[in-house]
Design a protein around this nucleic acid. Structure first.
Lengths: 191, 191, 191, 191
DNA sequence: AATGAATGAGGCTTCATTCAT
DNA sequence: AATGAATGAAGCCTCATTCAT
C-alpha cells in the first residue's frame, strides 16, 4: 500500500510540473504543495527526474486503464477506435496539465524525455493495434498504421490544447464529438 | 539589411534552443556556436526571451512565405489544403528542431510562450481560412473549422516528430504522402 | 534565538558593505568572510538588498538602544541632548564602517536607500523630540526642531568621518568632547 | 577653449552620477544624455573615474569661486563665516545632485574617493581658515578649528539633504536662514 | 574628432541535492 | 521515516572599455 505521502507528492508534482514545465518546476514548490519537507521527496524518489518518470508512468497507466475499459465496450474496430479517441479526448480535457506535458516534455534526448517518449509510443502503439486490426478487416484505409496512429494522437492532443488555451470556455461535449468524428472520418464529405 | 552577425546568432539560437529546449539552452553555447562573444548577443537582443521570440517570428515568417507560394499554386480548396499540409510537413521535416519547439515551447504562461502561441494561432488560422472557404464551397464537411485546423496541425506535427524520433531513417516522400492523404481524406475507406 | 550563522553573516556583511560600499560589495566576499557557502546567505536573506536592510535595521536598533539608556540617565533636556550626541559620536567612532554607510548609502531612490533613509529619519526624529521638549522648556532656541536635529546629526557624522579619514590617530575623548560642546553650544563665545 | 561637447558630457555626467551614484551610473546613459556616442567620452576622458574626477573638480571650483566672492563681501570674521555658510547652503540647494555625491562618494579608498575627499578637505580647510582667524580675533570659541569646520560642513549638508528628501516643498529662504543662524550661534539661547 | 558594434570579465541569483539530526 | 539548513555548481545578464572605421 503506497503511503499517503507518496500520493500527495505525486499529486503535487503533477500540478507543478504541468504548470511550470519540468525545468522550471522547483522541488521546493512541489514539497510545499505536498505539505512535506523537501528531504522527504528525496527519501521516496531518487531525484527530480525519477519523480517525473514515476509521475508519467502513473498517469499513463491511468489512461491505459481507461482504454482497456473502452476496448471491452466495443468489438467493432471502428467503434473501438471511436471509443479510444473519445476516451483520449476526455482524459486530456480532464488532465489538461498532463496534456501540456505530453506535448512539451516528450521530445529531446534527456533520459526522462526518452522514458516519456517510450510511454507515448506505448499509447500510440495501442492506437496502432486497433487501426491495424481494423485495416485487416477492411474497415480502415491506411498505408502505415504507425503514422496514422501518431497523426490521430497529435490531432486529438493539439485540438484539445488549442481549445483549452483559446481563452473561451470549452463546450466539452461538442469538442469531443467533433474530434472523434473528424479523427475517424476525415474532413471530406462522404460519397 | 540585417547584419551577418545577427543572422549567425539566430542560426545558432535555432540549433541550441531546439536541441536543448528553451530552459536548458545556454546563452554561452549560442554565443560560441555563433562565433561571437556573449555580450554581442545582448547587444542585439534584450535577453534570452527576446532572442527566442525573434527566432520564432523569423521561422514562422518563413513558413508563412512557403504557404503563400503554395496558395498561389492552387485555386481548388481541396488542392490548396493539400498544398498547405504538404508544405507544412516538408517544412517540419526540414526544420525538425523547430518542429520540436513547436510542440514543446508553445504551452504555458510565460510571455515567450504566449508569444509563441500567438504565432501558432496565426498558422492554425491560415489553415482554418482554407478549410472555411472549402466548407462554404461544399468541399469539406467540418463542424468547427477552428478545431479542424488545430487537429490537422497537430496531426502533421506529431506524425512528423514521431517518425523522426523513431530511430529508423525516414522515407520523406512516403511520409509526406501519407500525412497529406490522411489529413484530407481521413482513414475510413471512401464509399 | 537567531542562529549563529545569521549573526556571522550580518557581521561579515557589515564589514564588507562598509569597506566597499553597497555596489562594490560582493556576496562572494561576504560569504567567505562569514565562513559560509554563498547559497547559505540566500537561504536566510532574500538577496543583497534584503541583507543590507536587515543589517541596517540591526545596527540602527543597537544605536537606538544606546540612546534609550542615555535617555534614562538624564532628565534635564540639555543634559539629555548632550548624552545623545555623545552616545552618537561614540557609536559612530566604534562603528566607523556604519558611519560611512550612513552618509554614503542613505541618499537615492533605490528601495534600500529609501529604507535606510527611513531609519535615518527615525534617528533624527529621536533627536528632534529631545530638542522640541527642550525648546518648550525654554532650554533651546531653535526655529525648526526638525532641521536643527538634521544639522546636529550631520555635524556629528561628518566631524567623526573627517577625523577618522584624516590619517592621523584619533584622540577619541577629545574629539567627542568637542563635538558635544560645539553641537550644543555653537561656536560663538557665550556672553 | 573647452569644446562644447566636453561641457555637454560634464553636464550629463553630473546629472547621471548624482541620480544613480557613481557605481550605478552607466556610461551609456551619460553618452545618451549628452547626445554623443559612447566612444566620444573615451576620446575626451580616460575613463569613468577620470570623468568623475574632472566633474568633481569642476563643481568644487565653482563653489570655491562663490566663496571667494562671499569672502570679499565681508571683513568681519563672523560675517564672513555667515556668508560662507549661506553660500554653501544655497549652492547645495541649487546643486542637490552634487550634495548627494558630496556625502555619498567621498568616503572609501578608491582612487576617485581619495581625490574627492581631497576636494572636500579643501572646502573644509577654507571654512577652517575663517574659523581660525575668527578664533584668534576672539570672535569664535572653538577648540579644534578643523573639527569645527567639518562639523559645520556636515551640519549644512545633511540639513539640506534632509529637507530636500523630506518630500515636502522646501522653503529655501527659511531653511537657509535657520541653517546659517544655528551653524554660527548654536542652539542654546544667548545669555 | 567621433562613432558604435563588439567584447568578456565579473557578479547576483537559483535550485537540485545532501546529510546530520 | 522525515526534516530543513546548508551547499556550490551553473547560468543569465551588465557594463566599462576597446578599436576599426
Amino acid at each position: 500500500m503506497r503511503s499517503d505521502r507518496i500520493a500527495r507528492i505525486l499529486e503535487a508534482a503533477a500540478a507543478v510540473f504541468a504548470e511550470c514545465g519540468f525545468e522550471r518546476a522547483k522541488m521546493d514548490d512541489i514539497a510545499e504543495r505536498a505539505g512535506v519537507a523537501k528531504g522527504t521527496i528525496y527519501y521516496h524518489f531518487q531525484g527530480k527526474d525519477d519523480l517525473f518518470c514515476a509521475l508519467i508512468a502513473d498517469v499513463v497507466q491511468r489512461l491505459m486503464d481507461r482504454w482497456d475499459e473502452a476496448a471491452r465496450a466495443a468489438s467493432d474496430p471502428v467503434e473501438r477506435l471511436r471509443h479510444r479517441i473519445e476516451a483520449l479526448a476526455r482524459f486530456l480535457l480532464a488532465n489538461r496539465r498532463f496534456a501540456v506535458m505530453l506535448l512539451a516534455e516528450a521530445w529531446g534526448n534527456e533520459t526522462r524525455q526518452q522514458v516519456f517518449r517510450a510511454h507515448v509510443r506505448e499509447l500510440i502503439g495501442a492506437l496502432e493495434r486497433v487501426i491495424r486490426e481494423g485495416a485487416e478487416a477492411g474497415a480502415f484505409a491506411v498505408r502505415e498504421a504507425d503514422t496514422a496512429a501518431a497523426a490521430l494522437f497529435g490531432a486529438v492532443s493539439v485540438a484539445v490544447l488549442h481549445a483549452v488555451f483559446a481563452g473561451e470556455p470549452v463546450d466539452e461535449e461538442r469538442l469531443v464529438a467533433q474530434i472523434v468524428d473528424q479523427a475517424v472520418q476525415g474532413i471530406l464529405p462522404r460519397g
